[in-house]
């Protein structure tokens, strides 16, 4: 057995740089996914024909692998004259993918809010849109935070798939040095630990966010 973790020290700055790109991809991807997810959730619960568009989007995206989606965006779209950089393709792919799952998360959150909330808001003269924006969605978002955090963690790990469309994120960087130094175990172990560190931090941040947003549930001395 010839394990030599000292080699990691030398390349650590590059690995951290790769991890930085991983975080960037995950954050931008999930932000885009939240945006699409909210729209798709609202369309899905609307009584307009547009809800079928949302149904189709969710069905299509959840039913195909992210890797295939990334290939279609990065290698396929240029044939239609749409050429996106690897970075844009990655963010778009992660966004579209997480958006389909988040649409269901948000829909569940919205439907979990008691009907009386909508009735109270409408009876105060607030319109349907205002009711959704000010009363229902803020409550739905709070319920959705644990699932949202889960999707964030999934997206962060899924961003490793972007390595195959030339993104030098954490996995690809590790792969490069692993083959140069013949230190597969060392580099992939380090990559795994860095992923673990990132997901642990995300979990902790979300737990505190959840706790802070649930302040109305805590009994405060009034």
């Amino acid at each position: 057995m010839n394990l030599d973790f000292s080699v990691i020290i030398k390349y650590l700055p590059f690995l951290l740089q790769g991890a930085g790109l991983t975080i960037e991809l995950a954050v931008l991807g999930i932000a885009f996914g939240i945006f699409i997810g909210i729209i798709a959730a609202l369309l899905k619960i609307s009584h307009t024909p547009l809800r079928y568009v949302a149904h189709f989007y969710i069905w299509l995206v959840r039913g195909t692998p992210l890797l295939v989606q990334l290939f279609l965006i990065y290698f396929g779209l240029p044939q239609l004259g749409i050429t996106l950089s690897a970075f844009a393709s990655s963010v778009l792919g992660l966004g579209i993918n997480s958006g389909a799952y988040l649409a269901e998360v948000f829909r569940g959150g919205i439907e979990a809010i008691p009907k009386g909330q909508t009735e109270a808001s409408l009876s105060l003269g607030m319109g349907k849109f205002l009711t959704m924006r000010r009363i229902i969605f803020p409550q739905a978002l709070r319920i959705s935070i644990p699932s949202l955090g889960n999707q964030f963690i999934i997206s962060l790990k899924d961003s490793s798939l972007c390595s195959v469309i030339t993104m030098s994120e954490l996995l690809q960087t590790s792969q490069r040095f692993a083959s140069v130094t013949f230190g597969s175990l060392e580099f992939y172990t380090t990559a795994a630990l860095l992923y673990l560190l990132m997901t642990t931090v995300i979990s902790a941040v979300l737990r505190s966010l959840e706790w802070r947003l649930s302040k109305e549930n805590r009994t405060r001395a009034c």
Binding site: P114, G116, A120, Q139, N217
Partner: peptide, 9 residues
């Protein structure tokens, strides 16, 4: 309303 329906947030 019977159930008040105050906005809890």
């Amino acid at each position: 309303f019977q159930q008040f329906n105050l906005f809890p947030h």
